[in-house]
Amino acid sequence: MLSLLFLYSGDYGERVIRNLINDPSFCKSCSLLCDFCKYGVYSYVHNIRAAIELPNPAELPSFIENPEEYLPKSVPAVDICVATGIHKDLLLALPTRLKDEGIKGLIVPIEDFREVPSGLQRQLKEKCEELGLEYAFPKPFCALEPTETKPLISEFIREFKIGKPSLKITTEERGGSRVIYSVTVERSAPCGSTWYVAKKLIGREVKRDEIRDIVAKAHHSYPCTATMAVDPEVGEPILHIAGYLIRETVEDQLFP
């Protein structure tokens, strides 16, 4: 059983944590029509040894000379640390601190490229490689996939069933039309949005344009909180990339 540490600031980190523990007050997307599709299915509350909220970067100096002053005095020796939304200087100091604490891996989701610009990614990568830490900087978090070169992070994806969405969709003939009969979430986006998309697909006629519209609306209204600012590395908003990932997953099942 893998153990986790969350170091976060802002709403996104909390959303991922609440999805992993399957907090029954978390997902309100279906409002009064909620049928509790995910509650009781899983909970990883015992895997999360600590979830520590750090100061909002906007409330800290732009340059921090001694980042250790703002990091927790002690953290548990877990397998993987997930860090999101924290100040750039704190993030850069993290690999050394994690190594000292016996932590083996670092995941830094990128929901906003301005929080983890490409130069900072390179510095973090170099530090992690120097210290022998596994690392991943998924952009967005729902782009994270298993890879042979990262066995620990691949195990994280398999055990917690989060990362790039994976669905199993079955259909049936109904009144001369092909209709979606069931949707099983095999791997969810870390924020939990895949469950909502799955719910919205059931009973829908299998027509590509209509399915694309349903997926896009569900993904946006959950809502996806990735930035709408254009990422200079990829030439479009990270929110759009997240939308393409879930659309691709659905279409791979329906239109192979």
Rank of each mutant, 00 (worst) to 15 (best):
I162V: 15
E126V: 13
E186I: 07
T149N: 15
V116C: 08
E129W: 04
K150W: 00
E126F: 11
V185E: 11
L124R: 04
T96H: 13
L90K: 11
V116M: 13
I157K: 04
G119K: 13
E129Q: 12
R174P: 00
E134P: 07
K99C: 00
V183T: 04
E129D: 11
F160K: 05
I103T: 07
S188F: 10
G176E: 10
C142Q: 05
G102S: 06
R174K: 07
I169N: 07
P190I: 00
R187M: 01
L120H: 08
L92D: 02
R97F: 08
S154N: 03
L91S: 00
C142V: 02
S154H: 08
F141C: 03
G119R: 13
L133P: 09
L94D: 06
Y181S: 12
K150T: 07
G176I: 02
H87Q: 05
R174Q: 00
F160Q: 00
L152V: 01
E111H: 11
T96L: 12
G192F: 03
E115D: 12
L131T: 02
F141L: 06
E126N: 14
S118I: 13
I162H: 09
K168M: 09
E126S: 15
F160Y: 15
S154E: 01
L90Y: 06
P146C: 10
I110M: 01
G85H: 14
V179T: 01
K139E: 10
L131G: 05
D100I: 03
R158T: 12
K150P: 01
L92A: 13
F113R: 01
P165Q: 01
T184S: 13
I157C: 10
G119N: 14
I169M: 03
I180G: 03
V108L: 15
E145Q: 11
R97E: 02
F141D: 05
G192N: 15
P190F: 09
T147V: 13
E134R: 05
E172F: 06
L120T: 06
T149P: 04
C128I: 14
Q121E: 15
H87S: 06
L167N: 01
V179H: 11
E172K: 15
A93C: 00
G132I: 08
K104L: 09
G163E: 13
L94I: 05
S177D: 13
A143E: 13
E130A: 15
Y135F: 15
I107V: 12
I162D: 09
E126C: 14
R158P: 03
L124Q: 15
G102R: 15
K164D: 10
V183Y: 11
P190C: 11
F113E: 13
S166V: 06
E129S: 10
L91D: 03
T170W: 06
S182E: 08
A143V: 02
S118D: 14
S188Q: 01
T96Q: 04
S188W: 05
V108Q: 10
H87A: 01
I103N: 04
T149C: 07
L106G: 04
P146D: 09
P95A: 15
S166N: 00
D112Y: 12
V185I: 11
P146M: 10
I157G: 05
D100V: 01
S154G: 04
P109N: 09
L131R: 00
L124Y: 04
K88C: 02
I153T: 10
R114Y: 10
E134H: 02
